[in-house]
């Protein structure tokens, strides 16, 4: 039987994907919020004066960036419970994987942005008696944060797409939902096309939102 494209199947599939989409959004937002904390912490640790603290953060970043996220997900979901003797719910594991994974990349973003701020800013802040942490918080960080926005937006998009890998640990996110539909109607072409359209719609919205945000910040700083 010759293949025949059925646009109506694409349209019918879209609403069925909503449940998975919701989960994808939860995992992305949850994972990235956590990932930002991890990344900020690791990024600042990499700038510490303490050798051990620096090495610890460096170890985290190198390990995560040097291994595939798929392996990290399998390890956390199937491997770690063996050692702990208890299962981790797929959703929790999914959020943790995104957090730990994005955290490593965000650490580099944070470190780079903070280092790009003229050292004179830290010196001026210290010279009026601010402690190092205060100088970071009130003077360096706000300036660095502005520079983090474009690369963070990029990471947002990458992490969003990476959530699709979580289907292997049984998280019912967008791609997995699509796969389940295919298992019933065998319309792989239309269903995965619909899945792709949903991802694309999200990534385009994020890019667009970021451009607006950057413009606003540019105007604000005048």
């Amino acid at each position: 039987m010759a293949f025949q494209f059925e646009p109506s199947v694409v349209v019918d599939t879209l609403p069925m994907l909503m449940r998975g989409l919701k989960l994808t959004i939860y995992i992305t937002l949850g994972g990235l919020s956590l990932g930002f904390f991890l990344g900020a912490l690791a990024g600042l640790m990499k700038l510490s004066r303490n050798f051990l603290v620096r090495k610890l953060a460096g170890f985290y970043v190198e390990t995560i960036r040097g291994t595939p996220m798929l392996v990290q997900a399998m390890f956390l979901y199937f491997g770690v419970p063996m050692a702990l003797g208890m299962r981790i719910p797929p959703l929790v594991a999914g959020i943790l994987v995104i957090a730990v994974n994005s955290g490593a990349y965000i650490a580099e973003i944070v470190r780079g942005a903070v280092q790009s701020i003229n050292p004179g800013q830290m010196e001026a802040a210290r010279s009026i008696g601010l402690r190092r942490g205060q100088a970071m918080l009130y003077v360096v960080w706000p300036q660095a944060f502005k520079r983090m926005i474009p690369p963070l937006g990029n990471q947002f998009i990458i992490s969003l797409k990476d959530t699709s890998l979580l289907m292997v640990i049984g998280v019912g996110e967008l791609l997995r939902t699509g796969q389940e539909i295919v298992a019933v109607n065998f319309r792989a072409f239309e269903v995965y096309l619909a899945v792709a359209i949903v991802y694309l719609a999200m990534t385009i919205s994020i890019s667009w939102g970021l451009r607006c945000l950057e413009k606003r910040l540019q105007i604000q700083s005048r």
Partner: peptide
């Protein structure tokens, strides 16, 4: 107090906030 060749004002704060940061936080 120290005054630098390159000023090193805090660009993300207005002039008054630059001056009051020390008194408020320190």
């Amino acid at each position: 107090g120290m005054v630098f060749q390159q000023f090193n004002l805090f660009p993300h704060m207005n002039v008054l906030a630059n001056v009051t940061l020390g008194p408020i936080k320190v």
